[in-house]
Nucleic acid binder design. Structure first.
Length: 466
DNA sequence: TTAGGGCTAGCA
DNA sequence: TGCTAGCCCTAA
C-alpha cells in the first residue's frame, strides 16, 4: 500500500472511537513513514487518551507529553498552557501514588521523587524546555520538601492528585484535538462536499505519487526536505466538468484559511528558473541518448517471428517420450498440458497397477522443471547463427535424482500440536472479532500464534467446531 | 484472503 | 486399521 494512503487511513482511524487493538494492528500492518510529525503527534495523543479513558496515569503519559513537546518544538509551535498543567499534575500523581501505597513503598517514593522530579524535570528546567511552568517549579520545591517533612508528606497525600491529573489531561486533549486540523480524509471529503461533488466522484480523484505525507498541516516544516519544491496537485473534478487542483501546500493553507481556494505550484522566480533548467537538461539528454526501448521492441519482434517460424517447421517425433520432451522444451504451456495428458493415457494400463502417488508427489512430478539461464544451442550452429539471442531462461526436464532434491524442499511441515493457550486465544479472538478474520486475528495475537498461518487458524477453528 | 476438499502423520 | 488433528492445495 502507498505510504501516503496508509498515513491517511491511520490518521483518520486514530481519531475514531475504536478499540486500541485495532489501532495497534493498523500501526503494525500499514507501512508508515517516520517523517510525518503530525501523525506522530496524533498517535501520542491517542496513547494518552487511552490511558485517560482507562482512568490510569503513568510515567508513559509523561513520556508522551514530553515527546509531543519535542514535536511542537520541531514544528515551531508554542506549548499549550493546558499541556503544562497536565504535565505537572501527571508528574505529581506518578510520584504521590507510591507514597499512598504505604510505608513499605516509601523508599520507592523517594526513588520516584529522585527519578521523576530531580532528574527528569530538573533537567528540563535547566534546559528551558517548553513544558516548564512556574507552577511546575513551585511543585518541584514542594515535592522536594516532602522528603524531609512528615507534615509535607501528609499534605501531599491529602490531595486528589489522580483526579486532578485526569481532569487536566482531558482538558489538554480537547484543546490539542481542536488545535489539530481534521484528518486528511475528513478534510478532503468536506472540501468535495463544499464543491458539490457526489460520492461517486471520489473514484475520479487522481492523486499523484509526489503528494507528501500528511503535509496538509499549517506548518511548512511538515514537508520533508527535498519535497518542498516538488508538490504535485490532487485533481478533483467539479460539477461543471472542470478540475480543481489541490496542492499539498495549498491544502495546508486551506487548513488555516478556508477562504483561499485558488492554488498553484509555488510561483516564485526561483522555482520557474529551476523548472526551465530541468526542461532544458531533459531535452539535451533526449538528443544525446538514444531511447533503448525502440531497439528492444525491434528485437522482440524479431524473436517472435523467428519463434513462430520455428514452431511451424517443428516435426513431431514418433516416440511417446519424444512427445514429452517436446512438451518440456516447448514454451507453450497449453502444449505441455496437452502432451502430458496424452502421455498419461498412453501409460494408463501400467499406471493403474502402480500405487497412486501422493498429492505432493503428483504436484512435484507434474511441475518438475527448472529454469536454466544457460544457452542450450551449440556454438556456431548455422541454423541459429543469424538469430538474435536474448538471455532468456529455458525449461528443461530434471533427472529423478534432481526431482527428489526438489521435493525435499516442498516437504510437509512437521505437525505441531495446538497448545491450550493457542486454543483459548483462538476461541476468545473468534468471539471478539468473528469467524473468518483469520489474518486479522493472526496479526493481533502474533506472539501467541508464533508459527501458525491464517490457514492454520482457520483449520483449527474448523476442527474445534466439528 | 478465505473456504472447503483432500491428504498425511500419528495415535489408539 | 480406523480415526482425527494438522497440513496442503485450489477455486473464488
Amino acid at each position: 500500500m502507498d505510504i501516503r494512503i496508509a498515513h491517511w487511513i491511520v490518521e483518520f482511524m486514530i481519531l475514531q472511537p475504536i478499540e486500541d487493538c485495532v489501532v495497534n494492528t493498523l500501526l503494525y500492518v500499514l507501512p508508515l513513514s517516520d517523517n510525518d510529525l503530525r501523525l506522530k503527534k496524533a498517535i501520542l495523543l491517542r496513547r494518552i487518551s487511552s490511558e485517560v479513558s482507562n482512568g490510569s496515569v503513568s510515567e508513559r503519559v509523561l513520556e508522551s507529553l514530553e515527546r509531543i513537546e519535542e514535536l511542537e518544538y520541531m514544528e515551531g509551535n508554542s506549548i499549550l498552557e493546558s499541556m503544562k498543567e497536565a504535565y505537572c499534575a501527571v508528574a505529581v500523581d506518578c510520584t504521590v501514588r507510591l507514597l499512598r501505597e504505604g510505608p513499605g513503598k516509601r523508599a520507592d517514593y523517594f526513588d520516584s521523587v529522585k527519578r521523576t522530579w530531580m532528574a527528569r524535570i530538573g533537567k528540563m528546567i535547566s534546559g528551558k524546555a517548553g513544558l516548564v511552568s512556574e507552577q511546575l517549579k513551585e511543585t518541584l520545591a514542594q515535592i522536594e520538601a516532602t522528603k524531609w517533612s512528615a507534615t509535607g508528606c501528609q499534605n501531599v497525600l491529602n490531595k486528589d492528585t489522580r483526579n486532578d491529573a485526569l481532569r487536566l489531561l482531558k482538558i489538554f486533549l480537547n484543546e490539542a484535538r481542536e488545535a489539530m486540523f481534521p484528518s486528511f480524509l475528513e478534510f478532503t471529503a468536506e472540501k468535495m462536499n463544499e464543491m458539490g461533488l457526489e460520492k461517486n466522484d471520489f473514484s475520479s480523484v487522481s492523486i499523484p505519487d509526489q503528494v507528501g505525507l500528511g503535509q496538509r498541516a499549517a506548518s511548512s516544516t511538515l514537508v520533508p526536505e527535498g519535497d518542498k519544491n516538488s508538490e504535485m496537485p490532487i485533481n478533483i473534478p467539479t460539477e461543471d466538468g472542470k478540475k480543481v487542483m489541490l496542492h499539498s501546500s495549498s491544502i495546508a493553507r486551506m487548513g488555516v484559511d478556508t477562504a483561499c481556494n485558488k492554488y498553484d505550484c509555488l510561483p516564485t522566480p526561483e522555482v520557474s528558473k529551476i523548472q526551465e533548467a530541468l526542461k532544458s537538461s531533459t531535452s539535451d539528454l533526449q538528443t544525446l541518448v538514444k531511447d533503448p526501448l525502440l531497439d528492444a521492441l525491434h528485437i522482440a519482434e524479431t524473436v517472435l517471428s523467428n519463434t513462430a517460424r520455428e514452431n511451424m517447421n517443428h516435426k513431431p517425433s514418433e516416440e511417446n517420450q519424444d512427445k514429452v520432451d517436446a512438451a518440456v522444451s516447448s514454451h507453450d504451456n497449453e502444449g505441455i498440458v496437452e502432451v502430458q495428458a496424452k502421455n498419461s493415457n498412453i501409460g494408463n494400463q501400467s499406471y493403474q497397477n502402480m500405487p497412486r502417488p501422493s498429492l505432493m508427489e503428483r504436484n512435484s512430478t507434474a511441475r518438475t522443471y527448472e529454469w536454466d539461464d544457460a544457452q542450450d544451442r551449440p556454438e556456431g550452429s548455422s541454423s541459429h547463427s543469424e538469430k538474435v539471442h536474448l538471455p532468456s531462461p529455458k525449461k528443461r526436464s530434471l533427472s529423478p535424482l534432481k526431482k527428489y532434491e526438489t521435493m525435499k524442499f516442498a516437504r510437509r511441515r512437521k505437525t505441531k500440536r495446538w497448545s491450550s493457550l493457542e486454543e483459548e486465544t483462538l476461541r476468545a479472538a473468534v468471539e471478539k472479532y468473528g469467524r473468518g478474520n483469520w489474518k486479522f486475528i493472526l496479526i493481533s495475537y502474533r506472539d501467541v500464534f508464533e508459527e501458525r498461518t491464517e490457514v492454520d487458524l482457520k483449520d483449527k477453528w474448523r476442527n474445534m467446531t466439528r
